[in-house]
Simulated scan of single mutants.
Amino acid sequence: MADTTPSLALPLIAGGQAQKHVTHNEALALLDALVQLAVLDKDRAAPPASPAEGDRYLIVSGNPSGAWTGWAGRIARFQDGAWLSLKPLTGWTAYVADEAELYTFTGSAWMPFRATITALDNLTRLGLGTGADADNPFAAKLNKALWTALTVAEGGSGDLRYTLNKQAAGNTLSLLMQTGFSARAEIGLTGDDDLRVKVSPNGGDWFDALRIARETGRVAFPGRITVADVPVLTAQVIAGNSGPGSIPAGATRYFTNALVGGHPSVVYAAAGRRGRFRDLRVVTQGAPGAGQSWTVTLQNLFTGTALTCTIAGAGSNQAADLVNSAVFEAADRWCLKIVSSSGAQPTTSILFSLLFEGLD
């Protein structure tokens, strides 16, 4: 029969043993030292000068001195005026009072208990710096948060994608932003699968600021964009190249993208919606020549508009009209008209751009 127990090395009383109380009391003292193990500190490399009876320490120093010499990794207990060495086994846990931290013995070192946790599954609540509840089973009270990708060297892909999922189109999946726990803005899929941005002055009244249709990608601004309470019209750029068709000296031609003709009806394009053309810019391959010019005008079918610019002389190949504009109805048709002076150089591949602001 062994003299001690296998786990805590408590002394066993032998049959017919004299002074059984000595062995019994020694076992009780060891139980008192190891059960509900709590130590005062783990960072000392030498015993304190005036320990109290029952004081316990973890000796994590690799080279302890004094009465603790050779006790690295052990538990030291001051008992009956002397230090007692207790050798831990893998899995023992100790509470370190000055850190309010649990430590676990791995078989070779004492590690913070939290560092030994590698998986937490099926938690029903988790609170970081605050309490979680039934409405908010995950809650965090902090000032900064970091999500970073697992690198290839660490076994990851280097990517980071944050995935949120809702059950059906009619449900809500959003980021809700609050001030003093009163909602002020929301971004997400709110009640359908279009991406929306909404704002609120009081948490109760909501205004759609932006909506992106899931089927087409078309962007809508339900509220008119304004600057200093003046409506601002969002515009699309219409740009093109007249193509290889040549425009000789003294000629009048009409063009849109990749089309040049002698009549507007050959090249015109429909406006498609009510809107305003502005900011006409034209760039040619060369200059018309000294004393010569090319004049480009936006046409509303057969009628010229106020939007026009002229490239003149031997040193210029571009012009713009950033002042005038022209309003078109949805059914109106537009093209650009170029008038070449009688001695101008032939030109081709005219680059142009316009801004078109929807007014409907």
Rank of each mutant, 00 (worst) to 15 (best):
M1P: 12
S7W: 15
A9D: 13
P11N: 01
A14V: 04
G15R: 04
T23A: 10
E26W: 01
A27G: 10
L28A: 13
L28C: 12
L31M: 15
V35R: 08
L37V: 11
A38Q: 12
A38D: 14
D41N: 15
K42I: 11
A46D: 05
S50N: 08
P51L: 00
A52T: 08
D55G: 09
L58F: 08
L58E: 05
P64N: 00
A72W: 05
G73F: 03
Q79N: 13
A82P: 00
L84C: 09
L84S: 13
G91E: 01
G91Y: 05
G91L: 07
W92C: 05
A94L: 05
A94H: 03
T104G: 14
T106Y: 10
W110L: 09
M111P: 01
M111N: 08
A115Y: 09
A119L: 14
L120H: 02
D121S: 13
D121M: 08
N122A: 10
L123S: 04
T124H: 09
R125Q: 12
R125H: 02
L126I: 00
T130I: 07
A139R: 04
A140W: 12
L142A: 15
K144C: 03
L146S: 10
A149Q: 06
V152M: 06
E154C: 05
G155C: 02
Q167R: 10
A168H: 10
F181T: 15
F181Y: 14
S182A: 11
I187Q: 06
G191T: 07
R196G: 11
V197R: 02
K198G: 04
N202Y: 04
G204W: 01
G204R: 03
L210K: 00
I212M: 12
R214Q: 14
R218I: 09
A220M: 06
P222H: 07
G223D: 09
D229R: 09
V230K: 12
P231Y: 08
L233G: 10
A235N: 02
Q236F: 13
V237P: 05
A239V: 15
A239E: 13
N241I: 06
S242Y: 01
P244Q: 03
G245Y: 10
I247H: 02
I247C: 03
I247V: 15
G250M: 06
A251D: 13
R253W: 06
R253Y: 01
G262R: 06
S265G: 12
Y268M: 14
G275W: 03
F277I: 01
R281N: 15
G286H: 02
A287M: 09
A290R: 00
Q292C: 03
Q292R: 08
T297L: 00
L298Q: 03
L301M: 15
F302M: 13
T303K: 06
A306Q: 04
T308C: 11
I311Q: 11
A312Y: 04
A314F: 02
S316E: 00
S316D: 02
N317H: 14
L322D: 15
F328E: 08
A331N: 15
D332N: 11
V339G: 09
S341K: 00
S341L: 04
A344P: 07
Q345R: 08
P346D: 07
I350T: 07
L351A: 11
F352N: 04
F352T: 07
F356A: 14
G358R: 13
